[in-house]
Amino acid sequence: MHVADPEDVLAQLRTATRHGALIGLAEPDWDTLVVDAEDLDTSRAFTRYTASEVVRNATIGRSLARHASRAGFAVEAVLATTPVFRDFADADHMLGLGRNMQRAIEEGRIDAARGRQWFTSLSEGPFFASFTLVSVVCSR
C-alpha cells in the first residue's frame, strides 16, 4: 500500500523468487474501514478522507490478486479477514484515528468542532472499528 507501483514491486518479487516458490501476500483494503459512532456522517467523512488522502494505495487489498496475476504469479487462494477493534486506544494507535482526524481538520475536509466531538465520543463509550485484510497465496 505504500509503494508507488505495486505491480512493479510484484514483478521484482517474481524475478527474485525461484520456480515453484509459494508466496504469501497480505494488504488491507482501507476503503472498507468502518468506525462506529453516533455521528455517522463524520465517520463516513473520516473513512473517505483516510482512503482517498492518507493511504497511497488504499484499495490494494482488493486488487492484490489481480496485480499478482499480472506479475506472472499463479494465484492459489484469496482470503479476506476482518480485524475488529474494540479497544479505542489500540484502534487510535493502529488506525491513526486522532492523527488522521487532525489532518482532515487542518485541510478543511472536516469541521473542527465536529471532528473533535467525534473523536472524543469514540473514547467515551463502547468502541468498534474494522476493515478488510486480504491475503493472497500464489506460486511462481
Rank of each mutant, 00 (worst) to 15 (best):
M1A: 10
H2M: 13
V3A: 14
V3P: 04
A4R: 09
D8A: 15
D8T: 14
L10K: 09
A11C: 09
A11W: 07
A11Q: 12
A11G: 14
A11V: 15
L13W: 10
R14W: 03
T15K: 12
T15D: 12
T15W: 14
A16C: 08
T17P: 11
T17N: 04
R18D: 15
G20L: 07
A21D: 01
L22M: 08
I23T: 10
L25I: 03
L25Y: 03
A26P: 02
E27Q: 05
D29V: 00
A37G: 09
A37D: 02
D39N: 06
T42Y: 08
S43F: 09
R44N: 15
R44D: 15
A45R: 07
F46I: 14
T47A: 04
T47V: 14
R48S: 06
Y49L: 07
T50P: 13
T50G: 09
S52T: 11
S52F: 13
E53C: 01
E53Q: 07
V54R: 01
V55K: 08
R56E: 13
A58E: 09
I60T: 01
R62S: 06
L64G: 00
L64A: 01
L64W: 14
A65Y: 06
A65N: 01
H67N: 08
R70T: 15
G72K: 04
G72Y: 03
F73Y: 06
V75N: 01
E76Y: 14
A77I: 07
V78K: 08
L79N: 12
A80K: 08
T81P: 02
V84E: 15
F85S: 15
F88I: 10
D90L: 13
D90N: 15
D92C: 09
D92M: 09
H93V: 11
M94A: 13
R99L: 07
R99F: 00
N100V: 13
E106H: 02
E106I: 15
I110Y: 08
D111A: 07
D111M: 07
D111H: 12
A113K: 07
A113P: 04
R114H: 13
R116L: 03
W118F: 00
F119S: 00
L122A: 06
L122C: 01
G125F: 12
F128T: 15
F128Q: 10
A129S: 07
F131V: 09
F131N: 00
T132E: 05
T132N: 05
V134H: 03
S135D: 04
V136A: 04
V137E: 06
C138W: 05
R140L: 13
R140G: 08
